[in-house]
Nucleic acid binder design. Sequence first.
DNA 1: TCTGGGGTCCTCCTTCAA
DNA 2: TCTGTTGAAGGAGGACCC
Length: 449
Amino acid sequence: MDAFFAQAEQASKPSLRGKAVVVGGLGPRGVVSTASYEARAFGVHSAMPMAQARRLAPHAAYLVPRFAFYRSISEQVMGLLRTLSPLVEPLSLDEAYVDLEAGQAAWDADSAERVGRKLRADIRAVTGLTGSVGLAASKMLAKIASEQAKPDGLVLIPPGTERDLLAPMPVRTLPGVGPATQNHLRRAGIHTVGELAEAGEDELVRLLGKAHGHALYAMALAHDERPVVAEREAKSVSVEDTYDVDIHDRLRVGLEVRRLADRCVGRLRAAGLSGRTIVLKVRRYDFSTLTRSETLRGPTDDVAVVREAAARLLDAVDTTGGVRLLGVGVTGLADYTQEDLFAQAAGGQRTPPGEEPADETVPEPSGPAERQWRAGHDVRHEEYGHGWVQGSGLGRVTVRFETPHSAPGRVRTFLVDDPALQPAEPLPLVCTGPSGAPEDAGLGGGTAA
DNA sequence: TCTGGGGTCCTCCTTCAA
DNA sequence: TCTGTTGAAGGAGGACCC
């Protein structure tokens, strides 16, 4: 999908169409998740500090991400892909590989191109959004083709042309080459994929290590045998928070770690998993990051065990000077726990999934008690109908009243505790009803936040 | 006024047991 | 009993991706 989060916001908010839209964290330490193509023209891009984006594009609309909304659109798109093949490998909410041959949807370049064109039309019809398609004989090349196809296009790399196509491209084009590897290669005088291939496998292994060297050499020759894998098992579960202001108080650091441990266990249990290794992550005031881990004798999903392990790990970390980020994670995942084994040995039963032990609380992530009006989120007003929060502060909230199918709407301001104003679910982006009235076709059961 | 969150994979080092 | 080798596992950090 093209600039997915930003495009989804523009589709649901007519007044933002054709305008610069930036989606990301709006706090003092936020970064850009997605920028619309209009915002990119000002130099705004993903992973850029939000403060920098605001300097570059002060007039842009700045919105917080609405993941539940994007997920509902993503599920529709993934559903379309699964009609083409059983082998669909999602990379994220907005990207996936599809093995067309395995699904017998295509067998040569012509048939693949037909499938690609129809897919783009179907995505447009079902979601109202544009997506780009890259067609090639391997995952690496399909990815490169789809990048070339953006926005709103289709690119096919004909078999036999791969090496010639890759040769002049910068090394950064290849997946797995980031800023550090690019620098490394630049110092060795290697700038393009062609130069990478000429350097030879031994030289690349010497420069970049065994795994990376071999993999990069193969990719430079356009060799990529990685299969499309439909089901991938998670290897770790983690939660982390960056704080608006560094935390200096050791007691507070301990409380935050405990809170993160609770959230992590909540996620772990929701996924029906347990884990053996507990990881504490600390990013200090100077952005230096360290991790400490402890491996238990067996996997656990016990909140008290994870809390205690995280606290022990924290004991070994110097936090004087302040911390800006804390995280707690669990790796070495299993779908049983040490307690299962004990229970089995004793002929007993463990707490059924979903039921919490009486003396523990694993709070689900939730907002504070007072009403929060987050920029970009949907609302409904008794008199003015459906709209979205354009901004809030100083006890007031500004709402623009419009829907995906209306003309750009008017703005009104209310007190934050105005009882006539309530949070609302996102409206579907596509009308399918005979009357033209929006139906629930767009939102997969209306699961959005 | 710098730099999110949730992941995966790799490398290097240390420890420990066979 | 002592020593050297080897491999697995644990731990830490870094690079990369979306």
